[in-house]
Nucleic acid binder design. Structure first.
Ligand SMILES: [Zn+2]
Ligand SMILES: [Zn+2]
Ligand SMILES: [Zn+2]
Ligand SMILES: [Zn+2]
Lengths: 161, 161
DNA sequence: CAGCTACTTGAGACTGAGTCTCAACACATC
DNA sequence: GATGTGTTGAGACTCAGTCTCAAGTAGCTG
């Protein structure tokens, strides 16, 4: 909890100036599990409307360069970010219907990846492993829809035709 | 080879009108391994400048809806597309320095994925598994650079600071 | 504390990629 | 050939993200 404290320490430790704006951005970002840049902008501005959009983007880029924030592409909509500092490595499983995201760990896969890159003489730097499917609730809904019954609990729309 | 023939058959078989424009887009797309939408636009227009950008995008969307083309996010730049019809499932390994993309298969991982989704009660629909690293050539280059020697063979620039 | 420099910021212009609109066109069917 | 549906080209539009630049702020130095 309070993961922003560790982020702030790390930044200070690296001699990066921690302005009021940056502090606010860090704290709001750390409050999310996953967020888009524009979500963060709105959230930050709801606390201090004078913070410019550019500042949020710049800070996000800074955090990314510092290895504090990771960028995810969940193929629907703009990329998601996640404050991963002091968080164990994990991959993601997403419900394409309602957008729920589950973080999972699977050491077996992590090991196999090393095999794969060795096979091609590569040096592995990073990876993403994303599973897309239907959560239990949305499976129900789909079955109901098939029977032409009432609609669902969709809180994320669209998702490609 | 000539994978566009299968694509064209499939479209016809589904009663989708195969206009001259669509045919051109399909054939140019099938000539690539991976391509971005804008690359495809340029390529198509180099064969017939009268084809509008919108038509290329529309056709791409059509092919995607029909399950003929897959969309990949290799996190640097705009998404890549790939004509996957009649191609065995595979995942990707990319060199972050030079952009080389290797397609690999790893049945062990495919199996483990089923375990993972079962664990959370999900129904798996699709997945992406991307490994990022340095190819053999780029590893050399990096070592040379570390010794402050001459530059490399970079044919893709930037790649985040 | 005044003066200096380097870094950071807000505002807004700008860009690239993709989407949307709509009138003109092409096709198939009758 | 008239009618209706689907497709196209042209261009306006949108959204997310980047860039520019003058003004502001922090951290030193004397
Ligand atoms: Zn992993
Ligand atoms: Zn769901
Ligand atoms: Zn796979
Ligand atoms: Zn390489």
């Amino acid at each position: 909890m309070k993961r922003f404290v560790e982020v702030e320490q790390l930044l200070r430790g690296r001699g990066i100036r921690l302005t009021a704006q940056r502090q606010l951005v860090v704290r709001r970002a750390a409050a999310y599990l996953h967020f888009t840049a524009e979500e963060l902008v709105k959230n930050v501005q709801s606390f201090d409307a004078s913070v410019a959009r550019g500042t949020v983007y710049r800070t996000l880029a800074l955090l990314h360069r510092q290895g504090i924030v990771e960028k995810h592409d969940f193929r629907y909509g703009p990329p998601n970010y996640e404050v991963t500092l002091a968080k164990a490595h994990h991959d993601h499983l997403m419900c394409v219907q309602c957008g729920e995201i589950i973080e999972f760990q699977e050491p077996r896969v992590e090991r196999i990846q090393d095999d794969v890159v060795r096979r091609y003489g590569y040096q592995l730097l990073s990876h993403t492993h994303k599973l897309y499917g239907l959560c239990r609730a949305c499976q129900q809904v789909d079955r109901r829809q098939a029977r032409k019954l009432s609609p669902p609990h969709l809180h994320v729309e669209e998702v490609v035709a």
